[in-house]
Write a protein that binds this DNA or RNA. Structure first.
Lengths: 146, 146
DNA sequence: TTAAACTTGAGTAATTTAGTCGGATTTAAT
DNA sequence: ATTAAATCCGACTAAATTACTCAAGTTTAA
């Protein structure tokens, strides 16, 4: 039941962009340094986020990344799903096209994992990047943004 | 955010034992066949469950496994934790001795993963093997027990 | 005595993870 | 026009994890 670094780093990067929403595009290099993530690796994650339409990129000098939508319209669940795939403790209870179980009719444990899936999704979909920014300000984070 | 087959198979096996609680010990071979799990692999999982005190083994011919406690006293969370380790979407929010984050003071995303962890734990700890058996009976599972 | 069972430890192919690296392309600034 | 700052793209890889298999040993009911 572990999140990979994709979702972990990806959310950090999105939060970083959210904290600077409205200003110039932020170069990957800056985000990576600020969040302590390998620049090369983050590159891959941003490519996914761009293709999914969560961020926009500006190429060339003075370029960088910006959120494609205001922070209030981006849920944590959107970011996690983009990078980790559909929420699914098991294949057979995947949010997206659940794979058929061997037991077609009924499976006890499936119900349990479906409940786990839903409870995860409920948390992730109830928090937006704006919420994160608000909480960050409330906790008056001094040193840069993490 | 995927469960490995350890937790998946382990829970199936424990449910199988719960469905036969009170009678003779059930040989691994029977559980494995009934649940469609590799016998050799399940062997390893049962060893863990035994060391943790969730099942008892009876060696020798006519031996097998039985639950160490009544189904009402075994939570799904107990089984999952035994086989998958402490619930922890990320190391830094592990139920058991969370690893120190790089940012000692505060980390926004940590709060989120802690909430995810708690919501998973709440589901898994609210269901006992007895609950599973009751649901199984309610759904009148005809073909063996799965 | 035998066969059914658990016990233990080693080994392993396939997959996933968490990256690295090199080079191409775009564009603001000089 | 040149340069430097960026994104973009695809290939590559070491290490860890997963999901097993297998062999040999021990225990015990029949």
């Amino acid at each position: 039941m572990r999140l990979s670094t994709k979702g972990h780093y990806g959310l950090k990067a999105m939060f970083d962009l959210a904290m600077h929403y409205g200003s110039e595009p932020i170069p990957l290099k800056v985000v990576a340094e600020r969040q302590g993530i390998s620049e090369n690796y983050l590159e891959q994650l941003m490519a996914v986020l761009r293709k999914v339409g969560l961020v926009k990129s500006v190429r060339g000098a003075q370029g960088g990344y910006i959120l494609a939508k205001p922070p209030s319209e981006i849920k944590v669940g959107d970011v996690v799903r983009a990078l980790e795939g559909p929420i699914a403790p098991l294949e057979c209870v995947s949010e997206h096209e659940p794979a058929a179980c061997e037991k077609v009719d009924y499976c006890i444990s499936r119900d349990i994992w479906a409940r786990v899936r839903d409870s995860i999704a409920e948390v992730l979909d109830s928090i937006t990047l704006e919420d994160m920014c608000r909480d960050a300000q409330k906790n008056q984070m001094h040193n840069s943004d993490l």
